[in-house]
Design a protein around this nucleic acid. Structure first.
Lengths: 149, 149
DNA sequence: CTCATTTAGTTCGATATGAAATTATTATCG
DNA sequence: CGATAATAATTTCATATCGAACTAAATGAG
């Protein structure tokens, strides 16, 4: 091989872009009409990390502009999947809380995805996925700090 | 570890999503205002693979709906970076050809990115990136064929 | 305390994205 | 051949995304 480094990095981001596209499509096929990956991701994050996060924390976690997060949260709130409440310690801020419907929605989506994931796991053992994670996590962290510095 | 397989796959797609987001931001910071990753990606693909591709081929290559590709190509054409011509063998179809300005635009963008990429490569040797590619390529192919079957 | 600055979130406007219907052309089958 | 089905691209329309300007609240320097 002995490839041009630029080309190698480009290929990396290219493959990642396509896999990302495919994973959005896979997920959204299991969501009710109108619900997108952005909505699901926020619900999932609130369950994994814990709810009560602020909109700004969420926008940083997903690396999207805060205006985008405002919009996503408005959609979730209108659907009754989260509740926005004033932040107890900071009058400028808010906290995002899951509703029961929000938890149920996320659980249903995860359940619906299980068959798809099993299909993938039949082709690519989960061990291999787990083995690929450290690189991606490191890459994410490096890129994240490069963004500031 | 011995993680829940679903959780492992979710983490994978999550990390990929964030890296993708970060790579878009990185790239778009080097593009003239109004130009997005979608535009650059098409130009780059036309150079890497060869121009004369049809819009449908491009939409499949990037796994985006063909209406999205129509729109992206319209933007590129308006900017004078590609030329759309009738397909010589199929009256329904078109071919997308790079203009000189399109090639120059892509080359400039790549050159502008070199410093960024070098910054990343200082933290993560290109060898490691190359080592990560087979997994991602395999994943992309598996997901791509799972989409049909 | 007061004013300037910073920070959290929203609003606004412009553009991107994508599903569904539409048009034009080609392929296929009786 | 002629009718029907399939295919390539566009148009339409609704929504998502996100930069920039804005509002409100907190911080902090004097």
């Amino acid at each position: 091989m002995a490839e041009d480094p630029i080309a190698t990095w480009f290929t990396l981001f290219n493959e990642i872009g396509i896999v990302n596209q495919l994973s959005s499509t896979l997920l959204e096929a299991q969501l009710p009409k109108g619900m997108l990956r952005s909505h699901f991701s926020v619900l999932n994050h609130l369950i994994r990390v814990s709810d009560g996060r602020t909109p700004l924390e969420l926008s940083r976690a997903f690396q999207v502009p805060k205006a985008s997060m405002t919009h996503t949260l408005a959609g979730l709130e209108k659907a009754g999947l989260v509740a926005l409440r004033p932040h107890p310690k900071d009058g400028r801020s808010k906290q995002v809380w899951l509703t029961e419907a929000g938890r149920a929605f996320r659980d249903d989506a995860v359940a619906a995805l299980e068959a798809d994931i099993e299909g993938l796991a039949a082709e690519i053992p989960t061990d291999e996925v787990a083995a690929a994670l450290p690189f991606l996590t490191r890459l994410r962290k490096v890129m994240d700090s490069a963004r500031d510095g």
